[in-house]
Design a binder for these strands. Structure first.
Length: 136
DNA sequence: CGCGTGACTTGTA
DNA sequence: TTACAAGCCACGC
């Protein structure tokens, strides 16, 4: 196969990688854009992570709610406002506590993948609220 | 093919 | 501690 022009499937877009990483984030945990970007193999791609999530792939069950900025606060987007409140509600429902200013203690809730790669979490399954899928 | 935009990050004041 | 500015990469048009 020396085809250089043929790469239809073997080209996982960065978005897909990003979604994959976000999907690995366990409950009651949050991750920063830069962290997800680094894990996705896209350093400095923090912005792109936000972009990817902004696109909100309805077909991918991505817990975008667990993605917050480096300050531990929920990122305010341009549109779909209200989703921010929803994000906070969802995180709270998972057990994440918020500061009076609406910030999360990253030192406590930030997801720390140890061992090099996200291993299977024992007994914990992702319960994505259907509201999320319908909201997008 | 080129420019503009953006759910960010980090550093300095 | 907060506020402001510049930098960065990828996608959309």
């Amino acid at each position: 196969m020396g085809k250089t022009t043929a790469t239809p499937n073997s080209k996982p877009s960065n978005y897909e990688k990003i979604y994959a990483v976000v999907r690995r984030v366990p409950r009651a945990c949050v991750a920063t854009y830069g962290q997800v970007a680094a894990m996705a193999g896209v350093p400095r791609g923090a912005r792109q992570v936000g972009y990817a999530l902004h696109r909100c792939p309805v077909g991918a069950r991505v817990p975008w709610q667990r993605i917050v900025n480096s300050r531990g606060e929920i990122s305010t987007r341009s549109e779909t406002r209200g989703a921010e409140s929803l994000q906070m509600e969802l995180l709270r429902a998972e057990g994440v506590e918020f500061d009076a200013k609406g910030r999360v203690d990253l030192a406590r809730y930030q997801w720390r993948p140890k061992g090099g790669r996200g291993r299977a979490v024992s007994g914990i399954e992702d319960d994505l609220p259907v509201d999320l899928e319908t909201l997008t």
